[in-house]
């Protein structure tokens, strides 16, 4: 019975998980984002050139690229954190600190990407 999970959406909103929960939630949201972006991109280009180029125009706008880059970079760095902690489970004790370190990696990398994307987007 202990394995019976009975947590609804509203309990989830009340639950105060802090950093780890935010990372878990963003990992799922960014994962769905990547599946949608890449899936549309593959299907559009494989089956219809015209719809494909229309979707590519949207994908290449700088506002959209900011979103895609957030999803991909966050998912990659958070995924690496999960893999490292799973390989050395003793580190799980320091999970919250690991998530702070993760943001320390994510923010500068995303900032560089964002500066390049925005400056290029505003110039051209």
């Amino acid at each position: 019975m202990a394995r019976e999970r009975n947590v609804g959406v509203f309990d989830g909103f009340i639950y105060r998980g802090g950093g780890p929960m935010l990372a878990w939630l963003l990992h799922r949201i960014s994962g769905i984002g990547i599946v949608v972006f890449v899936g549309l991109h593959i299907l559009a280009n494989a089956f219809n050139g015209q719809i494909g180029s229309a979707i590519n125009t949207v994908f290449m706008s700088w506002v959209f690229q900011l979103l895609v880059f957030f999803c991909v970079i966050f998912h990659a760095i958070n995924g690496l954190r999960i893999i490292i902690l799973d390989l050395w489970p003793a580190l799980l004790e320091h999970q919250r600190e690991a998530i702070w370190i993760e943001w320390g990696f994510f923010l500068p990398i995303y900032a560089i990407a964002a500066i390049v994307i925005i400056s290029k987007g505003l110039a051209g």
Binding site: R3, E4, R5, N6, V7, G8, V9
Partner: peptide, 9 residues
């Protein structure tokens, strides 16, 4: 709303 049961080991 109920979630799925947790996977078995």
């Amino acid at each position: 709303m109920q979630s799925r049961p947790a996977p078995q080991p």
